[in-house]
Design a protein around this nucleic acid. Structure first.
Length: 851
RNA sequence: GCCCUCGUGGUGGAAUUGGUAGACACAAAGGACUUAAAAUCCUUGCCGCUUGCGGAGUGCCGGUUCGAGUCCGGCCGAGGGCACCA
């Protein structure tokens, strides 16, 4: 049979136009249906969309389409994270205004996203660089200011010397800036901070409620917040009135203490400012560097002080006091007591300086008299020994008891500490949200009043001089107070762009409201985001900030929201082989041709070597431009490829074979659609053929529903292949009845519509006319058709497969065993042997145990 | 050093609660159709012997079980995270 091929260039455009005209994907303002909020991380408008975007938005689009067919009122919006550094870099390099560059990129990328047929409600589009977005952000800033959650402090900051700006702790990766990659230095500056630490405990404990988040992300956040429960304990220095306060999470091991270790910048260190030996030691500690790996491999070193402290619970026992390179001033109190038997670092240290190692926790399988510590500290659970009134308690009871004693004796108190630091939000940049603050001549802080918002970014800026252009724009910077006429200056720092992305999901709920960032009634209906999809690279930064900011700005409103994202899915990256020419330069895949197993650069016929497959990146040139592929194969083939083979959470390998395979499949659907229209009307199927066909579609409905619900899109794809292969076979054998085939094909089209909406819409229109498929209902399956009439029962002897037995379903045990024993292979296997046991798993298998 | 995740054919991967390992796809080989090619369709896909059958088999070693890719213990390897966090 010859049919005209499916022409994606024409058909894609046709349906994309139709969807725009009919506002197919507009979320309803009438809140009478159950809602579903599906959101993918919004893009930074860097120029063109890349394959990572395509994968991210395809995954989200399947969910959005599926939920719509399931009868939900779906919110599936899109916006632009449009403030940020690259715009300024472009301004400097290409002499373009950041605004023009950004708006141009948004235009391009929006067009490209539309080419993929994503079911986005474009009426809710937002852009963070637009003042109708950031005016609300400035209001939130002032709101947090009033709530005492914003403050300014002079502090050592992480200074990125390339970006010329401040970075938050978590934006420093391996001592380098997260964006520039430059070595970060410490600089003293007056900076604005959000008090995220006020929410440390809530952000930690609430993680337990996020049962639709990947465990991995929750663990990363937990580690970042770094909650530790313990107590402070005051040691009296022997022979004078000084005290040293330590923090410990293991107060139960106090009877095993054999030394005190201080951070080298502990206040006591000031007494050693004239001691060259100490100053050398201190310098060496700093030299080790602050990357974790460097420090981990460093030998544990100490500098012995002249001080000794009294043990708080053992009379006449004193402990030596050291400065050490493994205690940090910014955690706890900058001082610890060392219990070598039960902490590896303390043990390493004790062995080096020949200090006592007294075991105080006895493992379950050990005898107290014989128990000793060699070169490995014991950190497991056990019973307390050698510890006076704590003896025989377990660790937890020991902790409670000793804290009780400490508090009774007024030598300390129970305490919880966090690793989390406040979020520094000042950036010395132009292209960001202005901080709505002014200063008078005395340098006092004056918040901009709400009626004067937004504080708009000035357009006239000069990038020819290094540094922050806002600082040099005196027209903008210097203003007069309306009331007093006093001269004021504006804050010239702008907000970290992570602030912009910390509430955009709220803005989408009320995107057209000019007066408010969001309306309570909208947020009440739409929030939380039911499914959030994005890269794992935001596991800490964006996701933690959003959890904090949402809490902070909704605190005290009618609808307090704690968790913004109910479900989180982190997708894998798109990878591609890398190519290098003989000069070691990267070569674009599109320039590489294969000839007799050799790879050549088609520009100059030079040999090209193939490197490992890595995440697509511009710097390695291993990129494939989505636009090129869409032009060649159409949107559905690209979407299909993104969903095939690899599970969404894992990396996917881009390949030409893969995309052309997807294209063939799209053509196959089309061919089947055409064949169904020309089925021989005289042919009648027999009863078992009808049953088999009904079974195949019912099974498909069940499988697709299950696999879409569980994000197993690659498995869903495999089930579609099976079904289409089956249909194709029946049609080729002319085993087809028009009414039945039209009916099951209709269900099939609904099932595949979320994956490949263009061809599904076109086939639907050709076979079934209007109304269009986007308003169809997701089909239900009937168990009675899924049930097999006959099954192949697995027959095992001693757990090994020996035979298959075809029987009717739900047979009783006795009958099955009788039939089993008649099988030749079974007879052969049990000859001369005794049957010890017979196992029957209904409709699955029989296992005969013989000896 | 610590924490987390993952190890299944030539490749990507499937196996929903412990029950036929390798679905589906890609690649490869052979075949059909064709003057030929492309496209399409079919078969094969670890080891042994001729079909059929038998054997090994999910990183390695051991355990639990009638039965383990799946559960438990120990190792090895890869990837990701980290802050020596007391």
């Amino acid at each position: 049979m010859n049919f005209e091929k499916f022409n994606p260039t024409l058909i894609d455009k046709k349906w994309q136009k139709y969807w725009v005209k009919n506002k197919t994907f507009k979320s309803s303002k009438v809140k009478d249906k159950p809602k579903y909020y599906c959101l993918e991380m919004f893009p930074y408008p860097s120029g063109k969309i890349h394959m990572g975007h395509v994968r991210n938005y395809t995954l989200g689009d399947v969910i959005a389409n599926y939920k719509r067919l399931k009868g939900f009122n779906v919110l599936h919006p899109m916006g632009w994270d449009s403030f940020g550094m690259p715009a300024e870099n472009a301004a400097i390099q290409k002499k373009l205004h950041p605004k023009d560059w950004t708006l141009e990129n948004i235009k391009t990328m929006k067009t490209q996203l539309k080419l993929l047929g994503f079911s986005i409600d474009w009426d809710r589009e937002i852009s963070t660089c637009n003042d109708n977005y950031y005016t609300h952000q400035q209001k939130f800033f002032l709101d947090l200011f009033k709530k005492g959650l914003v403050y300014k402090k002079e502090s050592l900051v992480n200074w990125d010397p390339v970006d010329n700006t401040v970075l938050a702790n978590e934006q420093v990766i391996d001592g380098k800036g997260w964006r520039s990659g430059a070595h970060v230095i410490q600089k003293k500056l007056s900076q604005w901070f959000f008090k995220i630490t006020a929410f440390a405990d809530e952000l930690d404990t609430s993680l337990n409620l996020l049962n639709e988040w990947p465990e991995k992300v929750k663990i990363m956040q937990k580690n970042w917040i770094g909650k530790s429960i313990g107590c402070e304990l005051i040691f009296k220095v022997k022979g004078n009135s000084k005290t040293i306060t330590v923090f410990t999470t293991r107060p139960d091991t106090i009877f095993g203490a054999s030394f005190i270790a201080l951070a080298v910048d502990h206040p006591i260190s000031n007494e050693y400012n004239n001691n060259t030996e100490f100053l050398n030691f201190k310098r060496n500690c700093y030299k080790t560097g602050n990357t974790d790996e460097a420090i981990a491999k460093t030998e544990k070193l100490g500098f012995k002080t002249d001080y000794e402290v009294n043990h708080p619970f053992i009379k006449n026992k004193t402990l030596p006091v050291f400065f050490s390179n493994f205690v940090l001033m910014d955690y706890g109190t900058g001082a610890i007591f060392g219990c070598p038997a039960h902490d590896q670092r303390d043990l390493d240290f004790a062995r080096k300086y020949k200090l006592d190692v007294i075991p105080v926790i006895l493992p379950r399988d050990q005898v107290e008299q014989k128990y000793q510590i060699d070169d490995e500290a014991f950190t497991g659970s056990g019973t307390i020994i050698n510890s006076d009134f704590l003896n025989n308690l377990n660790i937890d009871d020991g902790k409670s008891k000793i804290i009780e004693e400490i508090e009774k004796n007024k030598i300390g108190k129970s305490k919880t500490t966090y690793r989390l630091r406040d979020w520094g939000i000042s950036r010395q940049r132009y292209w960001g949200c202005p901080i709505p603050i002014m200063y008078n001549q005395k340098g006092e802080v004056i918040p901009v009043s709400e009626k004067n918002l937004p504080v708009k970014l000035p357009d006239d800026v000069d990038f020819s001089i290094p540094g922050n252009p806002l600082d040099k724009n005196t027209n903008w910077k210097n203003i007069k107070c309306e009331k007093t006429g006093e001269l004021l200056t504006r804050e010239t720092d702008t907000l970290d762009t992570f602030v912009d992305s910390s509430w955009y999901f709220l803005r989408f709920c009320s995107s057209d409201n000019k007066k408010h960032g969001f309306l309570d009634e909208d947020v009440k209906y739409w929030m939380p985001v039911d499914q959030y999809i994005g890269g794992v690279e935001h596991a800490i930064l964006h996701l933690l900030y959003s959890r904090f900011f949402t809490r902070a700005i909704t605190k005290g409103t009618k609808f307090e929201i704690d968790e913004p994202f109910k479900g989180l899915f982190t997708q894998g990256m798109v990878c591609h082989k890398t190519f290098k020419n003989q000069d070691g330069e990267w070569v674009l895949p599109e320039d590489v041709i294969e000839e007799n197993g050799k790879f050549l650069d088609k520009k100059n016929n030079q040999k090209v070597s193939i490197g490992p497959s890595e995440s697509m990146s511009k710097s390695k040139k291993n990129v494939v431009d989505p636009q090129t592929v869409i032009n060649l194969y159409g949107a559905d083939a690209v979407r299909w490829f993104m969903l095939s083979d690899s599970p969404p959470e894992r990396d996917i390998q881009w390949s030409n074979d893969g995309i052309s395979g997807s294209y063939k499949f799209i053509q196959k659907i089309w061919a089947i659609s055409e064949m169904i229209q020309s089925i021989d009307k005289k042919y009648k199927l027999n009863k078992s053929e009808i049953y088999s066909i009904k079974k195949s579609i019912n099974k498909l409905i069940k499988e697709i529903t299950y696999n879409v619900e569980n994000f197993h899109f690659n498995v869903a794809v495999a089930r579609f292949y099976e079904f289409i292969n089956y249909l194709s076979k029946m049609l080729h054998e002319n085993k087809a009845e028009i009414v039945l085939f039209k009916k099951i094909f209709k269900d099939f089209l609904i099932l595949i519509y979320p994956f490949t909406p263009h061809i599904a819409s076109e086939c639907w229109e050709k076979n079934y006319g209007h109304p269009d498929i986007s308003i169809a209902k997701w089909p239900y399956y009937d168990e009675k058709f899924i049930r097999e009439e006959k099954i192949n029962l697995v027959i095992q002897i001693n757990g090994k497969k020996r035979s298959l037995l075809q029987t009717e379903t739900d047979q009783n045990e006795d009958l099955i065993f009788r039939k089993c024993l008649e099988l030749e292979s079974v007879k052969k296997s049990i000859i001369d042997k005794n049957i010890i046991k017979k196992i029957y798993v209904k409709n699955k298998l029989v296992n005969i145990v013989v000896k």
